[in-house]
Nucleic acid binder design. Structure first.
Lengths: 261, 261
DNA sequence: AAAATAGTGTCTATGAGACACTATAGT
DNA sequence: ACTATAGTGTCTCATAGACACTATTTT
């Protein structure tokens, strides 16, 4: 590894005598004295479409991990916060703005990237279906289905599946990052209104249930689900009804308070 | 600010033609082309003692934030993982090893530290009482009570309170970090056996309840708490009893499976 | 005996799951 | 009329909170 480890104490410089004002201290402070890692953000952009949890992936054209699929990401710029970096990646690489996004976990194993020490702050975002239509037109980008090989809150890496059902190889530790994102939204499902971000303005209760089932990876009780959702007051009928269904049309609902980023 | 923002695309170098093997690519890859932030870990070392949630703080002797109190922390070294860095800080600055520790959140506002761009990966650790006795002997270190000015899962910064009841000023964004740690353990209280890490080998159910109440910041129902704990099977009687109490002695319990990091 | 806390038994309210039943569209 | 799904009503079971009561130690 070409990374050189500088063996110094991880403290303020010892040569410098204590400066008496903060200004004086900062004038003597040399921020280049320690070797520093690179820091990136990677964003797990999640949506529910066609009965599956899906995420945006890019096929890498260059080494390292050439031909493998990677989460959209980028280096954190010196003037932007982590949240801003994630929003920038969402805009530039997934074509969406003003979507729900939250920090997930920071991955920093020394050899997770062969280019050197690269620490990545992972985010996840929840996007309503349709908003990711532009992704398919981007070069090398695709919307892959997420296949979770564990149940409940067990955790671990997950797989990405392409259109033909083939498993797509994932770059770096991105299978772990995706797994962490699945774990996070499964956990949030019980106590936060997660469907807010994954459905259009108006929707059927059945569609909301489908979202929950896809995220959980197992069926939920219909009766209990309906009662809980309606009793919570977070969801309210619009008065409109489903059209062109081959059966009794269902009521359309909206969220009482539309959350957002 | 002395940070210089290098305005380049956050992609692989464009001058270099695609290398055909990973080795060839890495030979041409220059990791110094982007300006990089410093990365530290800060650890919220939590314990419950004398009816309060407490954490280890260091009074800073030098600028910046001189005389203010800071979480134990340190720069991440190039060869260690983030977990290892947190374990090192725990050992060197809190004097404990083999305690439960988990990544909390990463704080990266551009101006959170006046020395320049310093991104910190925050961890929290749970420590049984007594193990932090050595902290009080360390220079500038103290065990401060954590005062939470919000209820439930509201979140936000918290205060540190010294022995005399005086509020201690906190350095940088450490009040936010502490608040995030409180939020995390409050959330975990309901679905994980958090007392495992905060109590000695054997303990009274009343003590476990005290731990829960201190973390929640509000009382819990005694009857329901007892039933839940005993029904869960996670806690089992040792057969021993409390001694020298001014009332009927309570049964001593232990955790069925001692968790730990 | 009094004080103080440990621990038990029971009643009630709430919410989840199960299930039967009714309602309403397209075909 | 038949099918498929929407939506309602009701029963049961598990769990939390409330409360009364008993148990066992020190002072």
């Amino acid at each position: 590894m070409h990374a050189v480890y500088m063996r110094r104490a991880s403290k303020a410089p010892s040569k410098t005598p204590p400066a008496d004002t903060e200004e004086a201290f900062l004038a003597t402070y040399d921020p280049t004295q320690f070797e520093r890692p690179s820091v990136t953000v990677d964003v797990v952009v999640l949506t529910v479409a066609d009965g599956a949890l899906r995420t945006v992936l890019y096929e890498r054209a260059e080494h390292p991990a050439r031909r493998k699929h990677a989460l959209p990401g980028g280096f954190v710029r010196m003037t932007e916060s982590l949240d801003e970096a994630a929003a920038r990646v969402l805009r530039d690489k997934a074509g969406v703005t003003s979507v729900f996004s939250e920090q997930l976990y920071t991955f920093g194993a020394p050899k997770r990237d062969p280019r050197g020490r690269i620490i990545t702050v992972a985010y996840y975002a929840l996007v309503a279906p349709g908003l990711l239509a532009g992704v398919q037109e981007k070069k090398d980008a695709l919307l892959a289905a997420v296949k979770v090989p564990w149940r409940g809150m067990e955790g671990g890496p997950v797989q990405a599946v392409g259109e033909g059902g083939a498993v797509l190889p994932l770059a770096f530790d991105h299978a772990e990052i995706l797994g962490k994102a699945v774990l996070r939204i499964r956990g949030k499902l019980d106590y936060t209104p997660i469907g807010y971000e994954l459905l259009p303005e108006s929707f059927l209760l059945r569609e909301l249930q489908d979202v929950h089932e896809v995220i959980r990876g197992e069926p939920v009780n219909k009766d209990s689900f309906r009662r809980r959702m309606l009793a919570s007051g977070l969801v309210e009928p619009t008065g409109e009804r489903e059209r062109e269904a081959a059966h009794r049309p269902a009521e359309l609902y909206r969220f009482a308070k539309r959350g957002g980023e």
